[in-house]
């Protein structure tokens, strides 16, 4: 099982999500920058799942998702979307581009549950067999 990437521009949220997932037994890696995650992917470090904030400065969550789904090498990576609000406009990504949606402010257990379900679906429901890699890094709040 690869690490779970946590992508959010809010350091506090990044921290609590990472900690909670860590407590639940997952390995995580977090950043505020979508471009950095893409770089990791290009280096071949494909995660088990990505927890993604929608509204971020720089590359938006929607833009990141689009880039993610474009490359066949990592297009199947499950994504849990975390957002403050759902707008019915073109800033929101298409429904089939993410696997779960969690609204802020969220209950941590609810979030961990969403991640776990998504990973289960990825392993069993959607054929599983996702490449299991050794974690290439594990960052905590600095």
């Amino acid at each position: 099982m690869g690490p779970i990437y946590v992508l959010d521009d809010e350091p506090v949220i990044r921290y609590v999500i990472s900690e909670a997932l860590h407590d639940a037994g997952y390995i995580t890696r977090d950043t505020a920058c979508g471009a950095e995650v893409l770089r990791w992917l290009q280096e071949g470090k494909v995660p088990a799942a990505i927890v993604l904030d929608l509204l971020m400065p720089g590359m938006s969550g929607r833009e990141f998702l689009q880039r993610l789904r474009e490359n066949p090498a990592w297009a199947d990576t499950p994504v849990v979307l975390v957002t403050g609000a759902v707008y019915a406009d073109d800033t929101f990504p298409p429904e089939d581009s993410y696997q779960a949606l969690v609204l802020k402010p969220f209950d941590l257990r609810e979030l961990v549950c969403a991640v776990r379900n998504t990973l289960d679906d990825a392993c069993f429901g959607r054929g599983g067999g996702r490449g299991v890699r050794e974690p290439s890094g594990n960052s905590k709040i600095s």
């Binding site: 949220i13 609590v16 900690e19 509204l55 403050g84 609000a85 802020k104 402010p105 969220f106 941590l108």
Partner: peptide, 16 residues
């Protein structure tokens, strides 16, 4: 939306 981010931070920390 603006209130939700800091609230998520507080609620998340409390949950942790």
């Amino acid at each position: 939306h603006e209130f939700r981010n800091p609230m998520a931070g507080v609620k998340g920390t409390l949950g942790l």
